[in-house]
Design a protein around this nucleic acid. Structure first.
Length: 550
RNA sequence: GCGCCAGUAGCUCAGUUGGAUAGAGCAACUGCCUUCUAAGCAGUGGGCCGGGGGUUCGAAUCCCUCCUGGCGCACCA
């Protein structure tokens, strides 16, 4: 739709130039916006104001020369110059009705656009260490990552969702040791835990599982570690599945340094060859400062052990090699200091680091009736995703995680999320959907049949201002998806469907859909169907269900 | 000290290639159920867009500076 309008305006511009009214040949990309006020039209452009410099004339005069060509289009009802030189465009009602017909025709596919050009994109998210259960911070990352993946898919990208498993290195070593200690303890031995050991109850559970499966024979920390990683990942995957998230790929860090195909070693060797790695103080470093980092980074420590960063350069190198043209990492905001070195890696290997996009997830502050849940601002770290999910349900949980832009701290009120009233946004939106289905059921009972083919004539019964407002909002859905994908901000979809529900409820309250006026009833039923369809699709992008009755 | 993110209505937040009178939800107050779900709707009040400079026809938006808050500055992951 936007494209059609741009064509109209560009056409008007060219006409004006051809007639000698304008002289500018500057290639301006036409900026179209949806004005805040109805009286400013369905769309407006500031093109004339942008041309003042090159034309050397007042913007309103330039605008006058442009509106002739715009008005000539048969989609345009009228077109006027306003304010400092805006061109406000009003489209014909028939245009909007045909748009609604189009939306209905596309059905569930409405919302799919081609902006992504089918380019392969990877979204890596959650990637929590398999050393403990997912907490609500991970949950927010999971909700954002998954919604982002859905939105990018709708925007026409070829998306792969990936979880990076940190199954190598110190942390999982600590995990193995922790299990070993608990097993000894269970056997009645006196044990002492170190600061680095995991002491949660889940460790005891896994220790018991180990005994049940493998017996009490002497075993190595390596055995415990491998068992525990598997057990933890099983729990994490279960949490995620129950949260509605299924990954395309689980990528093991360990697989990057498996003996014969040691990609970490190979990547380090390559950096050394390029002169980008050097030895200092008994350690091997990467010269990340050459690529914008504020200090160089250690790859291999003086004790011979590799750093996490060493694995990560091999991992990201691999992402590029796997052919992804856009690489998205969803990280906790506390990792933002890590971004420059990863960016450095892209540039070190001659890639445009623009292909990397890191989405940072801010903390979640859990509240109950407005009061902080646990002491301390990091309460989110101590509450598991499972607890919250079980308490408020996955729908409310996911919706709440997506109500704010990822990089803004989020207040999550558990009582509000459970509340079945209009001040709970998730219920507000779902309720609009359920109401429409309720009407549809009534219509069906009354034997009202909807036509198979829908055109403008079918919809002429829609003539109220609030009906046009609904249609125009429906028509904006694809723009929202494009923008949301482009900026990697799923909350735009959340806001959009809240607005849509906010337009629908008053309409429902004021107007009756099923009446004795057959033609009007059918038109209104179709409008309702379109609203339900878009709400359902929007909720689906967020990973939230759309119940047909509540 | 340096870096990143933020500061918009009482609260939580939208507002992103600079646009017209800065928006929404909640909370508060006042109304609305013989009618498709009142789990809803209508109305009212509410703002030096953190402060100060600058850029220009125009700034919440861009630049500089200061203040405040969060986070990060490992041979941890």
């Amino acid at each position: 739709m936007r494209a059609i309008l741009k064509d109209i305006i560009t056409g008007a511009l060219n006409d004006a130039i051809a007639e000698g009214l304008l002289k500018s040949t500057v290639d301006l990309s036409v900026i179209l916006e949806r004005p805040k006020r109805d009286k400013f039209g369905d769309f407006s452009t500031n093109l004339a104001m942008l041309l003042t410099k090159s034309e050397g004339r007042a913007p309103r005069m330039i605008a006058e020369d442009l509106i002739k060509g715009i008005t000539a289009s048969d989609l345009v009802e009228r077109c006027e110059v306003a304010g400092p030189g805006f061109i406000n465009i009003f489209l014909k009602r028939s245009y909007w009705l045909s748009t609604l017909a189009e939306i209905l025709k596309k059905g569930e596919g409405y919302g799919n656009i081609t902006a992504g050009g089918n380019k392969p994109v990877q979204v890596e998210f959650v990637s929590a260490n398999p050393t403990g259960p997912l907490h609500i911070g991970h949950g927010r990352g999971a909700a954002v990552g998954d919604a982002l993946a859905n939105i990018l898919k709708a925007a026409g990208f070829d998306v792969t969702k990936e979880y990076y498993i940190n199954d190598a290195g110190r942390q999982v070593q600590n995990l193995g040791e922790s299990i070993g200690l608990r097993i000894k303890e269970l056997a009645g031995e006196e044990v002492e835990f170190g600061d680095n050991h995991y002491k949660g109850d889940y460790i005891i559970d896994i220790a018991k599982e180990y005994i049940a499966v493998c017996g009490t024979d002497e075993a190595t920390t390596e055995d415990y570690k491998n068992f525990a990683i598997k057990a933890m990942l099983g729990r994490i995957e279960k949490d995620l599945v129950d949260f509605g998230i299924v990954f395309d790929q689980w990528f093991s860090e360990r697989s990057l340094c498996d003996g014969d195909k040691d990609q970490v070693g190979a990547t380090i060797a390559e950096l050394t060859e390029k002169g980008l790695a050097f030895d200092k103080d008994g350690a091997k470093w990467m010269r990340t400062t050459d690529f914008g980092d504020d200090k160089d980074r250690v790859l291999i420590k003086a004790d011979g052990e590799r750093t996490y960063f060493a694995s990560d350069i091999a991992y990201h190198r691999g992402k590029i090699r796997r052919g992804f043209t856009k690489i998205i990492n969803v990280w906790g905001a506390d990792h933002h200091g890590y971004e420059p070195r990863i960016r450095a890696l892209f540039r070190a290997f001659g890639h445009d680091d623009e292909m990397l996009r890191v989405v940072f997830i801010q903390l979640v502050a859990l509240l109950r009736d407005g009061e902080p849940v646990a002491m301390g601002k990091r309460s989110g770290e101590f509450v598991t995703l499972r607890q919250v999910m079980d308490e408020v349900g996955t729908d409310a949980c996911r919706f709440f995680f997506l109500m704010r832009k990822p990089d803004a701290q989020l207040d999550f009120d558990l009582e509000l999320a459970k509340k079945q009233a209009s001040d709970n946004p998730v219920f507000y939106v779902q309720y609009a959907h359920a109401r429409i289905h309720s009407i549809a059921r009534l219509a069906k009972e009354k034997g009202i049949e909807l036509p198979d083919t829908i055109d403008v004539a079918t919809l002429v019964g829609l003539e109220l201002g609030e009906e046009m407002a609904l249609i125009k909002h429906l028509a904006a859905f694809e723009d929202v998806i494009e923008k949301s994908a482009q900026l990697m901000e799923p909350h735009k979809v959340t806001f959009y469907i809240q607005e849509l529900a906010g337009l629908y409820h008053p309409y429902y309250n004021r107007q009756r859909v099923v009446t004795d006026d057959k033609a009007q009833t059918i038109a209104r039923l179709l409008l309702c169907r379109a609203v339900a369809q878009v709400i359902r699709r929007g909720l689906a992008l967020l990973g939230v269900s759309a119940p047909e009755s509540m």
